[in-house]
């Protein structure tokens, strides 16, 4: 390449002509697109705020829940309902304390998944993104990787920190929490994976609807409204269908023993997987087909 002079509008006379037409230079390989998506991810203040609030909420709820659980353990002896809740964690009350904020993490990071794609369309950024990566799918997959990995990492790290904060609180009530126990590790990994799956669903919804409010409403409808609605509507069908909602797969996935009225673990994993794969594949097909 020839030398460039900043006083001239382009990068130096003759450069265009001198360029090797057959090999113009590096193009959008997947790694480069991934790097670009990561730059886009970390240079938005709103993204960072959502990640930080997830951590704050997870740790805060962990601490609150540690205190609540301690109180609860005192009453559990006299309360038969409490005993049942304890049973799903194999009698171990304290182990699920660090992930007690997961429902909020799921909402925040799911919304983040929606926003990262819907904002591409609402701001017009998509025109730049897909002009640089006209095959489109590499940009989608790169963004998906960024969304899924960040959701997993933030959830897992927040869970761990929530655990660290909870240990001394639980200790006050004479409850033991071992963060290195296999059930603690399983809860951390499964919850992280689950929230990552929700974020992926969010991103698919953002891609399909291209609208932030619509995408977040669809997500809230699926994870928060549908489970309640299905419970309120009488009939065996809804009772059965309720188990297959994505938000209801987390209980069997994290339980020590099978909980009545939920799917088996392998079923839950498949159902959650389908809830991710179907919208993501649909989003990819339509993203490829539709005008930007």
């Amino acid at each position: 390449m020839s030398t460039s002079t900043s006083t001239q509008p382009a990068a130096g006379p003759g450069r265009a002509a001198a360029r090797n037409a057959a090999n113009p230079g590096p193009g959008p390989s997947f790694f480069r697109v991934l790097n670009s998506e990561f730059i886009k991810f970390r240079t938005l203040l709103s993204t960072m705020i959502l990640l930080a609030s997830t951590a704050v909420v997870m740790v805060g709820f962990g601490a609150l829940s540690a205190w609540g659980t301690g109180q609860f353990a005192d009453q559990a002896a006299s309360d038969p309902g409490a005993a049942e809740a304890i049973a799903s964690q194999g009698g171990d009350l304290a182990v699920s304390v660090p992930t007690s904020g997961a429902a909020f993490a799921q909402l925040i990071l799911g919304s983040l998944g929606v926003l990262l794609m819907s904002s591409e369309f609402t701001t017009g950024m998509a025109r730049s993104t897909f002009a640089a990566v006209p095959k489109r799918l590499p940009a989608f997959i790169a963004k998906l990787v960024v969304v899924v990995v960040s959701a997993f990492v933030v959830t897992a790290v927040s869970t761990y920190v929530a655990g660290l904060v909870s240990v001394p609180i639980l200790d006050n009530f004479g409850l033991k929490l071992d963060l290195a126990s296999s059930q603690s590790v399983k809860l951390l990994l499964v919850t992280g994976g689950y929230v990552a799956a929700v974020a992926a669903i969010g991103m698919a919804l953002g891609t399909l609807l291209r609208n932030s409010a619509g995408g977040i409403m669809a997500l809230v409808g699926l994870f928060f409204v549908a489970p309640i609605a299905f419970q309120l509507i009488p009939g065996e069908f809804f009772e059965e269908a309720r188990k297959y909602l994505p938000g209801n797969t987390i209980t069997p996935l994290t339980a020590v023993e099978h909980v009545p009225d939920t799917l088996e673990v392998w079923q839950a994993a498949l159902v959650l997987g389908a809830w991710v794969v179907v919208p993501v594949v649909l989003a990819m097909i339509l993203l490829k087909k539709r005008d930007v």
């Binding site: 230079g25 670009s36 640089a132 990566v133």
Partner: peptide, 8 residues
């Protein structure tokens, strides 16, 4: 910077 990254 993000645009540039796609093409190194």
């Amino acid at each position: 910077l993000a645009m540039a990254a796609t093409h190194s």
